[in-house]
Design a protein around this nucleic acid. Sequence first.
DNA 1: TTAATACGCAACTTTATGGTTGCCAATTAC
DNA 2: GTAATTGGCAACCATAAAGTTGCGTATTAA
Lengths: 103, 103
Amino acid sequence: MAEAEIFAALGDATRLHLAQRLRDGPASLVRLTEGTGMSRQAVAKHLNTMQAAGLAACERQGRESLWRLQPEALQLARCQLDALSAAWDVRLEALRRHVERKN
Amino acid sequence: MAEAEIFAALGDATRLHLAQRLRDGPASLVRLTEGTGMSRQAVAKHLNTMQAAGLAACERQGRESLWRLQPEALQLARCQLDALSAAWDVRLEALRRHVERKN
DNA sequence: TTAATACGCAACTTTATGGTTGCCAATTAC
DNA sequence: GTAATTGGCAACCATAAAGTTGCGTATTAA
């Protein structure tokens, strides 16, 4: 399931930070590595994980590659979350009606 | 970060299925194990992972324990997703205005 | 053209994860 | 009271994940 992979890609503190950083616009690998306290290759691995999940994409621009977020993946994840809580909302609504009927 | 843990808890096909199953109401461990093709303990581990992330909770009811989803965690995850795509929407809006100004 | 920058690839280590089995305790059913 | 059901705990195994280092290759700058 693609959704699970997206959630997994977001389910790591480092990658979530990267996503937050990419939120404000594209950035290169070295840029994204700055301040992480880890090696460039470690960050690259995380970015590749995000790319495999469809959460990020990169485009080579001269000698650097610009990474950006893929909002479609975020949208997919959101739909899944909505689906999970929608039914709960329905159940809550049913409960509300049940309680109201009692009064 | 708690959000990352929630995403990680959702970032596994088995656990996402469990969440979908719990969506329709509480269920016991054996119930949740049915049809998974894996052992009861494996499912228990997954549920414990979900519990640690705040995504699920269980309540002992006689000899069985009823598991349920914790909608607050879903809400938190949704907020995080919104925060990630909100800035993107803003950038898209800025782009739209920029294009319109050119015409 | 030489040096520096930005990356990619591959090997390796350590630790976490997903799964198993075996056994024991508590609760319900007969 | 004895069985069967439901779960928890612990040990164990195999694989994946997160990180490192070393080295090679483009691209830009001096």
